[in-house]
Design a binder for these strands. Structure first.
Lengths: 141, 141
DNA sequence: ACAAAAACGGACTAATAAGTCCGATTATGA
DNA sequence: TCATAATCGGACTTATTAGTCCGTTTTTGT
């Protein structure tokens, strides 16, 4: 079991963080990403391709091809990635899986889960891909 | 996708809350639970059987058989159910799925997710099955 | 005694997610 | 020009989860 996101979404997040951290390299091949993250090349490749479609990532074919960020890393939030890959079900559905749960007929944990869900969403919305790029964030001397 | 728990776990939680809410009925058949919760009879039956093995639920065969709580509803926390069905991976694993993530080498959201995870766990640990039984909680006149 | 109705157990099937493979296309550099 | 190395697309396979089926056992009420 994963925690909050699908495996595909986890890989997407890992992948885009990797791209951000290694921006100076220019195009980065799926091969390299997969090797460094110890995941499947074909799978991360497919996953990044869906981010290409949504304009988060740019891809280049050919010998020196690979992937790179389509936008400024500071403008890409983790939430954006999650919504693209997994949708917003995590932030809408009842945590107990009750289809009828809502503000009219809340489940036992409805009011308690609400703030946590909002905090999770907020964490993802306010965390950008650039935030942990050592170079950009100035954390490295 | 489910939010935090497997479908099986969601059903277990729904089922045990149902048992608590309808304690006065004594034995409650899988048939009735399934019908009221709009889920599969066979599946909820199987799920409750694993709670029987862990001493949360008691089962009785035969014509008037069914399921009932094995312990005082105030002593059964939601967390207990979650740990039995899904284990504690949700509270241990990296939310980005990074195997190396930990306090030594934290992932980008490690420090932010920690408190949320603890709050989630705490919510489940402090919410008992009795809490929302209308009769026991005195919410019903 | 016996029919009915329940959980139990185990094997089975279905659905979904995860991951793989391969041929086609595109671009580069020698 | 041509070999090489990359993404792309689609079909495919595998793994996991979800859900079903059915015969057996147990218990109760008539």
């Amino acid at each position: 079991m994963t925690v909050l996101f699908s495996r595909k979404c986890e890989y997407a997040l890992q992948g885009i963080l990797y791209l951000a951290e290694n921006q100076e390299q220019g195009n980065i091949s799926a091969e390299q990403i997969a090797s460094d993250l110890s995941i499947s090349k074909d799978f991360i490749s497919k996953t990044l391709q869906s981010l290409v479609k949504d304009g988060i990532v740019i891809s280049h074919r050919g010998k020196t091809g690979g992937f790179s960020l389509a936008r400024d890393s500071e403008s890409i939030s983790l939430l954006e990635i999650v919504l693209i890959i997994d949708g917003n079900g995590v932030f809408e559905s009842c945590v107990l899986g009750l289809p009828t749960c809502g503000s009219e007929s809340p489940c036992p944990v409805h009011s308690k889960w609400g703030p946590l869900r909002e905090a999770s969403r907020n964490m993802l919305a306010t965390t950008t891909v650039s935030q942990f790029n050592p170079v950009e964030s100035g954390l490295v001397i």
